[in-house]
Simulated assay, not measured.
Amino acid sequence: MTSITKITPETELDIELEALKDDAATQRALDYYLKPAVSQPPQEKKVFVVSDDVSQEEAMVTACEYLRCGVSMVHSAADTHQGAHRD
């Protein structure tokens, strides 16, 4: 039977790794690959996005028109049995 011998690691390799341990570039690389939430800013949640070439006034007018159409549809759906017409 052979005896189990302990293999000692090369000391040169350990010295090189210790030198890299406190390096700023090493820390950034580890953060990037192991902690993506730390490396990336949180995503902003948006309800909707308006194109850059549309003015604020035009966007508000369009939003109001959509709301007006939605309210009109709800009223007409609720009043179909009465025959009332609402805008």
Score class of each variant (00 low, 15 high):
residue 80 T to S: 11
residue 24 A to L: 14
residue 44 E to I: 06
residue 79 D to K: 07
residue 75 H to L: 15
residue 32 Y to G: 00
residue 59 A to P: 00
residue 36 P to W: 01
residue 8 T to D: 09
residue 81 H to L: 10
residue 49 V to F: 02
residue 60 M to T: 12
residue 32 Y to K: 07
residue 11 T to H: 11
residue 11 T to Y: 05
residue 46 K to E: 00
residue 49 V to G: 00
residue 55 S to I: 03
residue 56 Q to W: 08
residue 87 D to C: 06
residue 75 H to P: 02
residue 20 L to N: 13
residue 35 K to C: 03
residue 26 T to N: 03
residue 71 V to N: 15
residue 59 A to S: 01
residue 63 A to W: 04
residue 50 V to D: 02
residue 42 P to R: 11
residue 27 Q to G: 05
residue 45 K to T: 06
residue 53 D to H: 05
residue 75 H to S: 11
residue 60 M to G: 01
residue 56 Q to N: 09
residue 46 K to T: 02
residue 30 L to F: 15
residue 46 K to P: 02
residue 82 Q to F: 11
residue 35 K to G: 01
residue 45 K to D: 02
residue 18 E to T: 08
residue 45 K to V: 06
residue 29 A to L: 12
residue 29 A to N: 02
residue 73 M to S: 15
residue 38 V to C: 00
residue 13 L to F: 14
residue 29 A to D: 01
residue 11 T to D: 08
residue 31 D to L: 11
residue 55 S to M: 01
residue 70 G to H: 13
residue 39 S to G: 02
residue 11 T to V: 09
residue 3 S to Q: 06
residue 12 E to Y: 12
residue 1 M to Q: 03
residue 33 Y to T: 12
residue 27 Q to H: 13
residue 67 L to F: 12
residue 71 V to C: 11
residue 27 Q to N: 06
residue 77 A to L: 14
residue 49 V to M: 07
residue 2 T to A: 05
residue 79 D to G: 09
residue 4 I to A: 04
residue 43 Q to E: 00
residue 63 A to K: 03
residue 5 T to I: 06
residue 85 H to F: 03
residue 30 L to C: 10
residue 71 V to F: 15
residue 24 A to Y: 07
residue 50 V to T: 07
residue 21 K to Y: 04
residue 28 R to Y: 08
residue 60 M to D: 06
residue 32 Y to M: 06
residue 74 V to W: 14
residue 65 E to L: 13
residue 43 Q to V: 06
residue 71 V to E: 09
residue 10 E to H: 13
residue 36 P to A: 01
residue 41 P to R: 13
residue 78 A to C: 07
residue 3 S to G: 09
residue 23 D to M: 11
residue 6 K to C: 04
residue 6 K to N: 09
residue 8 T to K: 15
residue 80 T to W: 05
residue 36 P to D: 02
residue 50 V to P: 01
residue 83 G to M: 08
residue 7 I to M: 09
residue 23 D to W: 10
residue 77 A to G: 12
residue 52 D to N: 02
residue 35 K to A: 04
residue 27 Q to W: 10
residue 69 C to V: 12
residue 17 L to N: 05
residue 23 D to R: 14
residue 87 D to Q: 08
residue 25 A to L: 12
residue 60 M to R: 10
residue 72 S to Y: 14
residue 48 F to C: 07
residue 76 S to W: 11
residue 44 E to Y: 01
residue 28 R to D: 13
residue 26 T to R: 05
residue 66 Y to G: 03
residue 84 A to Q: 11
residue 26 T to L: 07
residue 34 L to I: 05
residue 87 D to P: 00
residue 78 A to W: 07
residue 71 V to Y: 14
residue 52 D to W: 04
residue 40 Q to K: 15
residue 32 Y to L: 12
